[in-house]
């Protein structure tokens, strides 16, 4: 029996490099100006999975990602680095899902695969909530180990894991099935593998195949691993009430653009007289000294 690992990955806007054009004139976020990337900690989650695959005979890594059709890019990226297969969970009915509705959906998808181990990044950089991992574990009724820095030991039945906490470390062991979330202090993901890049560069999701002008029929028949399946609400057998906006207990009441309250500030240069003036001010007002 193969050791099945599900890696949960999310395509996110790169909020770490918000440039000047990331906000529109009306103060709303210009999503187009932010590149879509593989969520950094999810990439580190993939590396933990790849390290397990290096150690355990006959392990397979299945990527699950939920998002719009273009999120299939995440699956291809994971295949280039050594994942075995992937599914794109996509349906307009998922739109507006908060973390609870998202965890409901992902838990249904994980159940279809019945893995020994589920690995996810601790949090996604567009929300920073760190909630979806534990919420899925609860829905699956399995234990969780959050803040994983390294999987120290693994076999079919049990894992030994080092956790990175705010003020220290903890080493724990737990039987499978298990969900772990990976902390940013874990190893970075290995780069793309040239052979795998050649092998999977024509991998296409079902929606992409419908839009391609080129005829992929023959290629997909000969190389079925290039067809990336999509799962909809119907495929997951999901309860529509538990999805999207209706399945989300949290509602956004208000969004405000960030406008810093402007202070009357004194502008200075690097000239000695300016710096001396400032320091004298601080000393005279007993802020320092």
């Amino acid at each position: 029996m193969s050791f099945k690992i599900v890696v949960l990955a999310k395509q996110v806007p790169d909020t770490r490099n918000v440039g000047k054009d990331a906000m529109k004139a009306d103060g709303t976020v210009n999503r187009g100006a932010l590149p879509a990337i593989f969520n950094p900690e999810d990439l580190q989650a993939l590396e933990q999975a790849l390290m397990v695959k290096d150690q355990v005979e006959d392990a397979e890594i299945i990527i699950l990602t939920m998002g719009p059709p273009r999120a299939v890019e995440i699956i291809r990226e994971a295949l280039y680095r050594g994942a075995t297969s992937g599914y794109l969970i996509t349906d307009r009915k998922f739109a507006g899902s908060d973390t609870l509705a998202t965890s409901y959906t992902l838990a249904l998808a994980v159940k279809k695969i019945q893995p020994h181990l589920v690995i996810a990044g601790r949090q996604a950089i567009d929300g920073d909530t760190a909630q979806v991992g534990p919420q899925i574990a609860q829905k699956l009724g399995i234990p969780q180990v959050t803040y994983t820095e390294q999987i120290l030991d693994v076999n079919l039945d049990e894992l030994k894991i080092r956790r990175r906490l705010e003020r220290g470390v903890e080493v724990v062991k737990c039987k499978t099935p298990l969900l772990i979330t990976v902390h940013s202090s874990a190893a970075e993901c290995r780069p793309r593998n040239a052979k795998l890049l050649m092998k999977y560069k024509h991998a296409r999701s079902v929606s992409e195949l419908q839009e391609e002008s080129k005829d992929y029929t023959e290629m997909m028949t000969n190389k079925p691993y290039l067809r990336l399946e999509e799962w909809s609400v119907a495929d997951l057998g999901a309860d529509e009430e538990a999805l999207g906006l209706s399945g989300s207990p949290t509602k956004v009441k208000k969004i405000e653009n960030v406008v810093l309250a402007k202070k009357e500030s004194v502008n200075l240069t690097t000239e000695d007289k300016d710096i001396d003036y400032l320091m004298k001010e601080l000393i005279d007002s007993h802020v320092i000294g």
Partner: peptide, 12 residues
Amino acid sequence: AFGGNIIATIIN
């Protein structure tokens, strides 16, 4: 939220 570009008020 959203990389700190917005402030969101959330209710349940």
